[in-house]
C-alpha cells in the first residue's frame, strides 16, 4: 500500500513537472513548420538563415521543427490536431481545407503578399536524352504512341497542377473550348501507363524505371532530377504555355494563439519574402517572387506564358469541384477510357 502511494505521488510529481513549461511559456522557442515533400532541404536552409538573422539582431534562435509528407496528408494531420504553427503546402486547396475546419481565419491568402505564395514553380516536361520523340509542346503528349508519366491527381496535389496546365493549354488554343479541352486531356491520359500516387514516385518511375517518354513535373522537381542524374540523361522542355504553381504559406491561427507564438510564426513567414530567402528559394529551384533575384537566375527560369489558378480556373474550390471531385471530369475521362 505504501508502495502504491509512493507511485501515485511520483505520478503526480511527473505530471506537475510536465505541466510547468506549459504554464511558463511566455516566449515559445519552438515552431513547427508542416510542409509538403520536396521542400525539406529548402526549409532546412531557410531555418538556419532565419535564425542567423534573429541572432544578428540580438534575439534568441528558435528551434524550428519540420514535418514533410504529401500535401493533402499533411493538411489532414493539422486538421486532426498536429500542432503546426505554420503550414507551407503545395496548393491553396489544402490550406482552404484547414481553414474550413476553423483552424485558420478566412481570407488567409490575402494576409501575405503575392497570394501568400513567396515562391512559385511552373509545370514543365522532362524528356529522355536527345528528346527522341521530339516533344516540344503539350499537343505532342496527346499523340498516339507517346507514353506520358504523371501522378494521379486524385491522390497527389501536385499532379492537379499538371492536369490543369494541360487543360488550360487546350482551352486557350484557337478554337479551344471546354469540349476540346476535355477531349485533349482524355487523349493525354490515355497515354499514361502508370498513375503513381505521388510526384516523387512518378519521377522514380520515369527516371529509375525508364518508363515513359515524358514526365510532367514541377520545374523544381525537374531541375533537381537533371542535377541529380546528369544533363546527358534527361533534359527539360518548357512548353509554350503552362500554369503557375503557387504553393502557399499561412500561420495556423488557432495554434499560434493558443501557444502564444503568433509573433514568431509571422516573422518566420515574412522572412520568406526577404531577398536572402528568395535567393535560397532560387537555389532550391523554386521561382522567386522578387524580380531582382529572378533576374539573376533567368537562365535557370526561362520566361513562359502562364495561367493562374484564380484568374483562369476561378480558384481551387471551383477547379476541384469541376475536375477532381467524385464524378468530376477526371473521373469521367477514365470512365470512358475504360
Amino acid at each position: 500500500m505504501r508502495q502504491l502511494r509512493f507511485l501515485l505521488l511520483l505520478g503526480v510529481g511527473v505530471l506537475a513537472a510536465g505541466a510547468v513549461p506549459v504554464c511558463a511559456q511566455a516566449q515559445p522557442t519552438v515552431l513547427l513548420n508542416v510542409s509538403y515533400d520536396p521542400t525539406r532541404e529548402f526549409y532546412q536552409e531557410i531555418n538556419a538563415a532565419f535564425n542567423r538573422g534573429r541572432v544578428g539582431k540580438g534575439g534568441q534562435p528558435l528551434t524550428i521543427n519540420q514535418s514533410h509528407g504529401g500535401s493533402g496528408m499533411q493538411a489532414r494531420s493539422v486538421i486532426d490536431g498536429l500542432e503546426a504553427d505554420v503550414v507551407t503546402l503545395a496548393l491553396a486547396y489544402d490550406i482552404d481545407a484547414i481553414q474550413q475546419r476553423g483552424l485558420i481565419a478566412s481570407g488567409w491568402q490575402k494576409r501575405l503578399p503575392e497570394n501568400s505564395t513567396p515562391y512559385t514553380s511552373v509545370i514543365v516536361f522532362l524528356v529522355r536524352k536527345g528528346n527522341p520523340k521530339g516533344i516540344r509542346d503539350w499537343n505532342d503528349l496527346a499523340k498516339p504512341g507517346t507514353a506520358v508519366i504523371t501522378p494521379n491527381p486524385k491522390t497527389s496535389g501536385g499532379a492537379r497542377w499538371n492536369y490543369l496546365a494541360a487543360w488550360g493549354f487546350a482551352r486557350c488554343r484557337s478554337g479551344g473550348s471546354d469540349a476540346t479541352a476535355r477531349d485533349f486531356v482524355t487523349r493525354l491520359f490515355r497515354n499514361v501507363p502508370v498513375l503513381d500516387s505521388g510526384a516523387r514516385a512518378a519521377t522514380t518511375t520515369f527516371v529509375q524505371r525508364g518508363i515513359g517518354d515524358v514526365l510532367i513535373a514541377w520545374e523544381n522537381e525537374a531541375l533537381l532530377a537533371v542535377e541529380k542524374i546528369g544533363k546527358n540523361q534527361v533534359s527539360i522542355v518548357v512548353p509554350s504555355m503552362t500554369i503557375l504553381a503557387e504553393p502557399p504559406v499561412s500561420v495556423v491561427d488557432r495554434v499560434v494563439d493558443r501557444r502564444g507564438s503568433r509573433r514568431q510564426a509571422e516573422a518566420y513567414l515574412q522572412f520568406l519574402y526577404t531577398p536572402e530567402a528568395q535567393e535560397i528559394a532560387a537555389r532550391h529551384h523554386f521561382r522567386p517572387r522578387n524580380p531582382d533575384v529572378l533576374a539573376r537566375y533567368r537562365t535557370r527560369f526561362p520566361a513562359v506564358r502562364t495561367l493562374a489558378i484564380d484568374r483562369d480556373f476561378g480558384g481551387w474550390a471551383a477547379a476541384q469541384k469541376t475536375h477532381f471531385d467524385e464524378g468530376g471530369i477526371f473521373d469521367q475521362i477514365f470512365q470512358r477510357g475504360k
Partner: peptide, 27 residues
C-alpha cells in the same frame, strides 16, 4: 501495392487507393 500496381482506374486500382484518394479530397 501503390508502387507496383500503376493505379490505373478499372485495371489496377485497389480499394485502399480509392480510400486514400477520397481522403485527399477531405471527403
Amino acid at each position: 501495392v501503390v508502387f507496383i500496381s500503376g493505379n490505373l482506374p478499372f485495371r489496377t486500382e485497389v480499394i485502399t487507393l480509392l480510400i486514400v484518394a477520397r481522403l485527399e479530397q477531405f471527403d
